[in-house]
Nucleic acid binder design. Structure first.
Lengths: 345, 345
DNA sequence: ACCCTTCCGGACAGGACCTGTCCGGAAGGC
DNA sequence: GCCTTCCGGACAGGTCCTGTCCGGAAGGGT
């Protein structure tokens, strides 16, 4: 085994278990214990501190240093990391998803083929079940898109709009943002001379051209804010607006699916909340979390939505009072599969 | 720069950008291009294939090979990976969380101190907001526990039970499982001569003794199943049972918070669902997703719960019909903060 | 078809550095 | 006090690493 290979192996061993004795390491690496000592020294010189304790039960262990040593992951761990990144929770922290995507791109680029399908399989099962099927983001697609963002490379891909209309795009990719397990690409489309957002799960065959572009300024503070605005402006299948006798901050804290721009303060003690969703069930869920605040509420929306909510409320009351309820054809629309929040593209 | 250090730097460069020309690499590494070529060859011999393309715009790029090369992450990426692992989605895949925890232990062991607080800060904001505050799992604690599982080391820690009673434990840690962003440790407690589950967010000061133990057989197929059973048996603050005129598989697919053992088939076309939760709001949410199935339902539960659901249903119906509703003191209990599913310890 | 740019890899010489062997020393645990 | 472990200097032999040459092959653009 060559020396650099041995160093990596050593790092790998030190990462895979808490503590190793010099003799064990020497045997595993096929060298003298003196050489192990030298290798450990080399690691230390590289800036990866290795603690050692003498005496019975002593040994070497990797400590945390100034910067992160190369991570040597086994197959399972690599899959776990990929899945973790893929389902990266978005909300709040500026740019965290961006970084998740970048890390995923890094990993995906070198992920052995045999692990690819495992990542896909696991993320299949593991993604929030509130998402409809068919909205699963393909890690490979996401990785390509993320790499294009990172390298400021023009990106071409096929896209299927929310209404199902296919198109071919050639855009300047800028940022990736995730909301509730859905990934969105914020990009500038030179052909349409405007900014667009794309749902990554509706992107197919992304191919990085090798052409670089110089990033333009996004017409917003940051990508998350921009996306939030775009989504808030997007038409939903079903929509309703509630006015709540509680401060915006309280509502934001308790409502599921926290989208800043859904909640609009009306003075210090009241606010207005947009409940839009692509299924009536989602609208009802959102409303329920407002009801749970137990404050005065008013509601405004199309008859279709109000009717459904009314029927749902009646069924709930009936169920609780009498112990049973029959199916109600008026609520049928809510059983169709959800497709998540819409997009502006 | 020594040769192994240079190899690592080369790997890092190749991972950080899509493509590099030989000349660029030579300059970055401070060696001749001939040496770069030799280094690239060395990488290939280590089993990390590097694609190269000649001609204008050509260069070197890392390809995927038989196994994963050492990952060289920058600060941000390391934080993203840690957070991704910490919020690892559980559901379904056998042992995936276990692996996530192992990978996290690996990472946490070598994570520079300055990044620790960033991981904590990000996961603070980023964890499912449906979780009450104070149920955030400390990555450092989780990492220690995971390492103890991995190394089969006896673990001591302080624990605060669900009722708030403190105790000191000394257990044989076996498995980690996560449900909805909460981590559970399944362990054998020799002092009590029985298996126990612990919520990791209620564990403090975990310290691995260096004493090894030989794992005993868990009284279940796997840890997830065991936990599921334990949680299903655990008393909830509020509880109710619904009988649904739909196959169990359909319900499992559509209900939020899929816990296998919550849903019990009654023949092929009906099933019984346990709606237990620690807030009335959670119970109502669960019930709502059953209502959305739009099938016949019956409900059974304590008057306290039924009353609340009745009131909620009435308020919902009223709101939808008249456009407004007043606060209702009968539903007050639902505004208390949730604490997530209970545990059996 | 031509040229330019890029990757490729053999040969060679000088010197750096790596390894095993031997050793005396220090520090923790029983 | 004994054992086990880590520690690091000295030394000799030989590996192998690096820079410098070079001719060759393969894309891409004009």
């Amino acid at each position: 085994m060559t020396m650099p290979a041995r160093m990596l192996r050593l790092l790998s061993l030190l990462q895979s278990r808490r503590e190793w004795s010099g003799a064990e390491l020497a045997e595993r690496l096929g060298v003298t214990d003196r050489t192990v000592r030298r290798d450990v020294d080399r690691l230390r010189e590289l800036g990866y501190p290795v603690d050692a304790s003498p005496g019975t039960g002593g040994g070497y262990r990797l400590a945390s240093g100034r910067d992160l040593p190369p991570l040597l992951l086994d197959d399972d761990e690599a899959v776990a990391v990929a899945v973790g990144l893929l389902t990266a929770p978005g909300g709040g922290v500026r740019g965290i998803e961006e970084t998740s995507a970048r890390a995923l791109a890094k990993l995906e680029q070198v992920l052995p083929a045999r692990l690819r399908h495992r990542v896909a399989a696991v993320s299949e099962v593991t993604l929030p079940i509130t998402l409809a099927k068919g909205t699963r983001t393909d890690p490979a697609v996401l990785a390509v898109v993320a790499a294009a963002c990172r390298d400021h490379e023009l990106l071409t891909f096929d896209y299927e709009s929310r209404e199902g209309a296919p198109s071919s795009r050639r855009v300047e990719p800028h940022h990736l943002v995730t909301v509730h397990g859905l990934w969105y690409l914020v990009a500038y489309d030179p052909e349409r001379a405007d900014w667009r957002t794309f749902r990554v799960d509706r992107v197919t065959a992304p191919t990085p051209t090798h052409r670089r572009f110089s990033p333009r300024r996004l017409p917003a503070e940051d990508a998350a804010t921009y996306l939030d605005r775009t989504l808030a402006a997007a038409p939903y299948r079903y929509d309703a607006v509630a006015t709540v006798a509680a401060p915006a901050s309280v509502v934001l804290e308790r409502m599921i699916g926290p989208s800043r721009s859904r909640v609009e303060p009306l003075g210090a003690r009241r606010c207005r909340v947009r409940l839009g969703g692509d299924t009536l069930e989602i609208v009802a869920q959102r409303l329920l979390s407002l009801l749970a605040l137990d404050v005065d509420l008013t509601l405004d929306g199309p008859a279709e939505v109000l009717d459904h909510l009314h029927a749902t409320g009646r069924r709930l009351a009936e169920l609780a009072a009498t112990g049973s309820t029959k199916r109600d054809s008026a609520t049928k629309a809510s059983t169709q599969a959800g497709t998540g929040p819409g997009d502006g593209a």
